[in-house]
């Protein structure tokens, strides 16, 4: 029975692929089912995009979005022309790359570890506990980091460096340490949450593949290498492409609240978002803030198109669109 179906299927598919109209008809109920989702995205996401024009306008609260006067690219100029331009673009991109690579590796590893665990009770405990950091706001994370790195009473200085006879470090005035600190904080906060996606994908796999492999005498490591990782690949690719779209955005809380906006750390903690926030803090300039967002989106868009194009060339099914 199984084999007979498999034999027919490609033929059916081939036949139906010919007819655009029959496919349209077949999927009509599914289109209909997804209609509310379409409408929602149009209302919630596409209609407000009218506001993107404000990136090129001097927004007047009295005149509104449409009647505000155009001002060319004036809203963009504050982002360039000072030493900060180089600092913020460099930081934003480099942190994102590091976070993407390490974050993915870390999350996938944890998902596989969880999947390999036998004890169901412990598994549940781990799964709950590693989610905790994700539940804290970045302000709270900032306090926790301070508890560790405070100059006088911080855990690292008072319990590690001083007892070892090393000199206490004034962490909040030494910019060079912060790339490492922020990476650790980012991974710590996000790994539990990120690994859920991979774990959910893992437990949903056809277990018969593993059973077959076990019968063939494959070791755990071989199973992971030749079954688990290939099966996770599409998810990894999709999540990576989505992250690339946000290549020029940054987690504001991580870069602003965690270093507690300490000036001496700006060279390694300033990203596009924190610079924009600081610049616009007191004048609520809607146009300038949208200009920055627009620039980030456009650059992210270009990166995604390139990435998606490349993926499509290699493996059409893994592409995002």
């Amino acid at each position: 029975m199984k084999s007979s179906k498999n034999a027919i299927t490609p033929e059916i598919r081939a036949k139906e692929r010919k007819s655009f109209r029959s496919r349209l008809k077949r999927y009509a109920p599914l289109y209909l089912l997804a209609l509310p989702s379409f409408i929602y995205l149009i209302i919630n996401n596409y209609m407000p995009m009218v506001g993107l024009t404000l990136a090129f306008k001097k927004f007047s609260f009295a005149k509104g979005i449409f009647a505000s006067p155009w001002n060319g690219v004036e809203n963009f100029s504050y982002l360039f022309g000072s030493k900060w331009a180089k600092i913020m673009f460099k930081n934003t991109i480099l942190y994102n790359l590091v976070f993407l690579v390490l974050g993915t590796v870390f999350a996938v590893t944890v998902a596989i570890l969880l999947n390999e665990l036998v004890n169901a009770k412990l598994k549940q405990v781990y799964q709950t506990v590693i989610l905790i950091p994700h539940l804290f706001s970045m302000v709270i994370v900032g306090y926790i980091v301070f508890a560790f790195l405070g100059g006088t009473n911080g855990f690292v200085n008072s319990h590690i460096l001083t007892p070892l006879g090393a000199k206490a470090i004034n962490w909040y005035t030494k910019a060079k340490y912060w790339p490492v600190i922020l990476t650790i904080v980012h991974l710590w906060k996000g790994f539990g949450f990120q690994s859920i996606v991979y774990y959910a994908t893992l437990v949903g796999f056809d277990q018969s593949l593993y059973e077959a492999a076990m019968v063939d005498g494959a070791t755990k490591w071989q199973q992971i290498k030749s079954i688990t990782i290939p099966l996770l690949k599409p998810t990894v690719i999709i999540l990576t492409i989505m992250s690339l779209g946000r290549m020029f955005n940054s987690d504001f809380g991580l870069f602003y609240q965690v270093p507690q906006n300490n000036g001496m750390l700006y060279t390694t903690t300033t990203t596009i978002d924190t610079y924009v926030y600081r610049a616009l803090m007191m004048d609520n300039d809607v146009g300038r803030s949208l200009a920055a967002g627009f620039l980030q989106s456009i650059l992210g868009f270009i990166v995604v198109m390139l990435a998606n194009f490349t993926v499509r060339k290699v493996d059409e099914n893994s592409a995002l669109f």
Partner: peptide, 12 residues
């Protein structure tokens, strides 16, 4: 996917 990249900000 486009909705992930672009948004018109809080006012609109």
């Amino acid at each position: 996917f486009f909705t992930m990249l672009f948004n018109g900000g809080m006012v609109p």
